[in-house]
Amino acid sequence: MTLTPLLEALERLDEAHIQMLDLAVTKKQAIKENKVEELIKILNKESKLSKLIEQLEEERAQAAYIFLQGVGIRSNLNLNLNELSRLVFDLKDKQKLLDIQKRLSGTLQELKEANMLNQQLLQQALSYIEFSIESMSYYSETEATYHHPAGKTVGVQRSGLFDSRA
């Protein structure tokens, strides 16, 4: 009934999420500076790290299952760390488990906030691009083609972005 494999899995999960948080900070800077190539590299790193986190999550679940079997629970319960800590009777192990839970929870909260900020930045960038495209495509197709000056009528209004007479 050792808790060590579970604690180690949780530690590795926290480290992986800290790496993901570092990438989120780097991504924010790349978005602000409009560095598309760097953003693509960051997304590739995030993808690889996500796969690692999935593997670590499986290890954590397996370690929790083994721990539950060690304390006499034979079913495959999916307990959260608070519920699991109630089954730990060694005070040192219980404190270690609660400490890593607190750290992991804090890291996940920071990561969630960073991802929300990056999502907002990307949404603003896309809105700006959409606005720019709409403002540039404001002219009708007839205004964009050449017409002989003799064929124009005198009272034509301009709807351009700039008034060259000013």
Results as ranks from 00 to 15, higher is better:
Ile42Arg: 04
Glu54Asn: 08
Gln62Trp: 05
Ala9Trp: 00
Asp163Ala: 13
Leu56Cys: 08
Val88Gln: 07
Ile133Leu: 15
Gln120Cys: 05
Leu10Asn: 01
Asp22Met: 13
His17Ser: 04
Ile66His: 04
Glu54Gly: 12
Glu110Leu: 15
Ser135Val: 08
Glu110Phe: 13
Ser85Leu: 06
Asn78Gly: 11
Ser47Gln: 11
Ala150Cys: 00
Glu58Ala: 14
Leu79Pro: 02
Arg74Leu: 04
Ser159Met: 12
Ser137Pro: 04
Glu15Val: 09
Ile66Asp: 08
Gln29Ala: 11
Leu121Lys: 05
Met1Tyr: 03
Glu54Ile: 10
Leu91Lys: 11
Pro5Ile: 01
Gln69His: 11
Ile18Trp: 00
Ser85Trp: 00
Asn78Ser: 13
Asn118Lys: 02
Glu38Met: 15
Arg60Met: 05
Arg86Tyr: 12
Ala24Leu: 04
Gln123Val: 10
Ala114Lys: 00
Gln124Leu: 12
Asp14Leu: 02
Ala150Glu: 06
Leu52His: 12
Val154Asn: 14
Ile100Asp: 03
Tyr65Asp: 02
Met116Thr: 04
Ser127Arg: 06
Ile66Asn: 04
Leu68Gln: 01
Thr145Glu: 13
Ile18Tyr: 05
Gly70Asn: 09
Ala114Pro: 02
Val25Glu: 15
Ala9Leu: 07
Thr145Tyr: 06
Arg74Ser: 06
Thr4Asn: 14
Ser75Ala: 04
Leu56Tyr: 10
Ser135Phe: 00
Lys92Ala: 12
Pro149Glu: 07
Leu21His: 10
Arg158Pro: 05
Phe67Leu: 04
Gln123Arg: 14
Glu113Ile: 15
Ser132Lys: 05
